[in-house]
Design a protein around this nucleic acid. Structure first.
Lengths: 126, 126
DNA sequence: TCTGTCACTTGCATTTTACAAGGCACCTGT
DNA sequence: ACAGGTGCCTTGTAAAATGCAAGTGACAGA
């Protein structure tokens, strides 16, 4: 009997550890880069493509799908035929901000040459 | 002319963004799990293998090598012939703790069933 | 009509990951 | 002395993810 092939939106959790669980959800090369972009106001497919890290189009499409399935992202149709979507973070997705802020602090402190993020990004949300 | 094969300890940075840079260094399925283990006092190859996430042995060996090359981890020889090492975090590696703590807060708040980390893990370091 | 744009999808090569097995040096029990 | 076990990896191979380039469909503007 063949094991059913896992779809790329399916996520298997390795343990109940909150760190491992977070990594199972967003611990890849691209997901948190997309979250970052959404936090600074980007919303459309082309916006994410324009970021300096140059995410491949197929990966972006797959990540948006998976993050939507995970409840991190919601999409709104802003045009029908052809369908066009604006993506935004849910509360769950937005709550990753402190993780990103601390990544910024770490890289700024320990990796020379990293950019200083805008104050608005580093400011605590109420 | 063939592109010289990148070694698995080599890291290419996608941009100067501190988030993307952090992900280039530790943004994979396993690195931060190993950092977590070291923070709670694990030090030897077998210690990391024993964690509930069950990291494959070849991935563990590769990650330890890469994290050492990145200056996140230092190893001390505790036995010669056969060589045996105890791994521990450098200051740079230990400074990732706030990132991990915020991953814990996020998962505990938004992913039901995740374990509550020990207080000592969540306590701010001086 | 022709050209361009936007948001994807598809095909394929390369790279990474996972799983299983093997190897080497020592240690422990009999 | 010798069998079996332990700790720390390495190697082989299959499966999956990633990256790159090209293609598609619907429209908008010249």
């Amino acid at each position: 009997m063949k094991k059913p092939r896992a779809k790329n939106t399916d996520i298997a959790f390795r343990s109940g550890c909150p760190i491992a669980t977070t990594l199972d959800l967003v611990g890849d090369r691209w997901s948190l880069v997309i979250v970052r972009d959404m936090i600074v106001g980007k919303a459309k497919f082309g916006d994410f493509l324009a970021s300096p890290e140059r995410i491949p189009t197929n990966i972006l499409a797959a990540r948006l799908k998976r993050m939507e399935a995970a409840g991190l992202v919601a999409k709104r149709t802003y045009q029908i035929n052809p369908a066009r979507y604006a993506y935004r973070l849910s509360d769950k997705g937005m709550a990753l901000l402190p993780v990103l802020q601390n990544m910024c602090r770490w890289a700024n402190a320990y990796v020379p040459g990293t950019w200083t993020p805008p104050e608005s990004f580093m400011a605590p949300r109420v």
